[in-house]
Simulated assay, not measured.
Amino acid sequence: MRTNWLVPLPLKKKKGLFLSAPRRDLMPLVPHDSPSPLQRNKQPAKQMSGTSAASPRPSKQPPHAPRRLAPSLSTPLVSLALLLLAAAAVFLYSQTAARSYESRGEARPLSSPTVETIYGSRAIWELPAAAPARAVLFVAHGCRCRPENFWPPSPRCPGCVGLPEDVAITGLALRRRFAVLAVASAGECWSLGKEVNGAKRVIRSWAAKNGLEGLPVAALGASSGGYFVSRLAAKMSLAAVVIMIAEGAFGGAAGAPAAAYPPTMFIHMPKDRRRVALLERNSKMLTQNGVEVKELESLELPLTPTLLSERIPGVDRELSEKIWKVFGDEGFVDEKGYMKDDGRATPWKDALVKRGLWKEVSPWADHIQEELNLAYGYHEMTSLHADEMFDWIEKHLT
């Protein structure tokens, strides 16, 4: 049964707001989100407990999935076989992704990232291929996520995951001639102390090394990353900051930002009513302090037969339609195709195992999970407003 505060329509955009009459008692609250991540082998963060932005759960086998014995890695032949299998998987991903883009009449995104360690932080970055970069986009992931989510697997980054919403943002940034830099947090989530200064150092060192000094820098962060970039914006000169599915964290005696705080965009999902209230308070506070604020809302989407094949390179139409049918048969969607529950709380993996589809679906489980969370419209990385977001950023580059 749908709650009366939802709007069962596809995308709706909310124009930029210049809010007034703010209150001054606006100290940010400690982020509190329900965990929903693609996991990463890192130490738990003590400082902050935000949720993942790109928040599919780890692709664990469902309880009823057939288990396989793990091969021994003690012999050179087995190790070589595993390397060959990994290379084949990267090749298969790139080929199926290319066919998916071509079927939609879109240009295949270029992917030539560099993976390196900068001042002890794992970083992945890429420069636009077509022309010199006009600006820099720093990207901060959510809790238990990682920079590898923002690029598809490739020979230059075989460990990359390529989650669809994340990759769509990276691809559009590169096409718009942004040099893109993503850095891994030290723990599961970002902290708001030393890591902020550390990221500032990484950005400046990387820019100098790659001939990008003097270019304007914009920052985008989702969930825990949103809190992080809101603090980063107070520590270094940014052309614009985009805070996604987070209300931001602002220091000072009354939650006030730094004297020269950059234009700020909030992209959020109204189903998260608690966060909406916090976001509105911070929006008013920023406006009162002379900061330009814009807000975009991302609403739920109906699950159509081709939604997954349209949004996930590598998932073909036939598989998308099979999954859609299972969702209807299992009652996971209502009569209009909207998800009844959060994708994280829907037992869709068990349902696909029961129908004998898990082997075909499992390579894309994390990608599908992200799109189901997006369709439900609650706390997920989203590229649905990417064009409008970059249009707004570009206005502030000069």
Rank of each mutant, 00 (worst) to 15 (best):
P347K: 07
D366A: 15
K294T: 03
V241F: 14
E106T: 01
V353E: 00
T51M: 09
P8R: 08
H268I: 01
H396T: 03
A53V: 06
R144M: 10
P257A: 04
R317H: 08
E116V: 03
W5L: 12
K194M: 05
P109D: 06
G198K: 09
P62F: 00
G225I: 00
A54S: 13
S154A: 15
A345C: 02
E318R: 15
P71M: 02
R108F: 12
R146L: 03
A123L: 09
A219N: 01
V291T: 07
P10F: 07
A184G: 06
L73D: 02
A345L: 12
W324G: 01
P113R: 12
N41A: 13
P62Y: 02
S103A: 15
D272K: 08
L308A: 04
R23N: 07
I118N: 00
R273Y: 06
H268Q: 04
L212T: 09
R57S: 09
P164Y: 10
R273D: 00
L238Y: 10
R146K: 14
L82S: 02
R275K: 05
E370L: 13
N282K: 05
T3E: 12
L85A: 13
M389F: 07
W151K: 10
A199T: 04
T306A: 10
H64L: 12
G50K: 12
T382P: 00
P63N: 03
L11S: 05
R177K: 15
R344V: 04
G290A: 11
G251V: 01
E370W: 03
M285D: 01
G328L: 12
T117V: 12
E126R: 14
N4R: 13
K209W: 11
H367R: 15
A179Q: 10
T96D: 05
V202D: 01
A70Q: 07
D342P: 02
A258D: 04
F91Y: 15
G248D: 04
S230G: 09
A246C: 13
P63H: 08
P76F: 04
A186H: 13
E106H: 14
K60P: 01
L137G: 03
E370F: 02
A233S: 07
E126N: 12
S112H: 15
A98M: 14
S49Y: 14
T114A: 14
R317C: 02
T306H: 13
C145S: 14
A219L: 06
F327A: 06
W5V: 01
